[in-house]
Design a binder for these strands. Sequence first.
DNA 1: AACGCCTTCAGTGTATACATAAATCCACTT
DNA 2: AAGTGGATTTATGTATACACTGAAGGCGTT
Lengths: 213, 213
Amino acid sequence: MRASDRAYAALRDDIIEWRLRPGTVLAEVEQSERLGISRTPLREALSRLTAEGLTTTAGGRGVVVTDISLEDIDELFELRETLEGKAAALAAERGDAALFLQLQKELLEAPDLISGADPARHEYYELVGRLDEAIDAAISNSYLAQAMRSLRVHLVRVRRLAADDAARLTAAAAEHAAIAEAIAARNPRLAEAATTVHLHRSLSHVKATHTPH
Amino acid sequence: MRASDRAYAALRDDIIEWRLRPGTVLAEVEQSERLGISRTPLREALSRLTAEGLTTTAGGRGVVVTDISLEDIDELFELRETLEGKAAALAAERGDAALFLQLQKELLEAPDLISGADPARHEYYELVGRLDEAIDAAISNSYLAQAMRSLRVHLVRVRRLAADDAARLTAAAAEHAAIAEAIAARNPRLAEAATTVHLHRSLSHVKATHTPH
DNA sequence: AACGCCTTCAGTGTATACATAAATCCACTT
DNA sequence: AAGTGGATTTATGTATACACTGAAGGCGTT
């Protein structure tokens, strides 16, 4: 793997997991020494992070980790509702019904995963990720898929702000199942509505349990 | 200005204006010599272009200019309808009515600009650009604005495929005026509908006058 | 004592030299 | 004659040296 890829992945993880807090200045020499690479691949990594919006160039004085405020979360979910609502509707029109029926079935059994032994709920998040991927594939629109992918980076960062307790995850699983069911039923408007409901519940939960860092 | 910025702007223009055709391989040494800079800033420019989707890295054999097919245009307008429809609705909710009323007035007089002396219709495109900027500012959602900005790069590229004759531009100006009017009237659903109508007409025009390069 | 200018330093911006990997072409073998 | 393997060449990937800009601190002057 290329050094710039490793640097990008490492910095991206550090930012998403809040190990690098907003406002932190990422000096080139400092970070390149920390990651054990030279400045050239590090600069490429920083470029990619800045293009994604995780960092911003502070006018010739290095790049700083972007802040995420409560207003940002509102804006983020406003765009998310637009994109994912449309995506769910398109998936209902174009998707493979059998696949989403299977996903619905698994999501209805998700409470078993949530109450299971794994505290990180790895299997649960993997299942939700499979639903996202299935929708991405079903819409067959690379531009829309790309826009959603770039959004998800910021969303993971926000999710780390909220406490994902078992009760919320169980409810979320049911909401995801409803989305999958609507897509499998080839009902675009229902799929969009189910997505809207899910996102509003998610946003309410994030804002309710938001813990300032 | 930084050398990497100049290289980025030059390459971006070359791609958008179809001077660099899809499939063209942008070798680092070749392009850096052509632009009179070294490979380092050129690489940064290529990174940014690739992040925007104007180029793709061809696995160890340089980056190539991305192709735009007819299906891409459909996908592009599908996303555009989603984003700009939402943006128009939000602008109707949050925008400054007086500003959009003024823009509507100017747009209704746009036929004068189109039939004017300037064959490039510089004043007309500047006016449409002001409408875009006004909507961007009104929505007060940086993530949505960012998504639309990255989309517009590809749209300019598509526009160069179509013949923007006076008749179409006159009709487009009227459609833009209708959008501005709906926003000024603080009617979100009407603003979204007017945007949908305008985009469908634009798409039809592009596909009708599309000239394969 | 406060304000302004100059010097110094730190850090990014750029160029170039070197390493590495992949693709192509030629030769050899089957 | 065709396919495969290796060598060469060409391109990207990385490191480092140098240049330039911007800032901060100290010293001098008012």
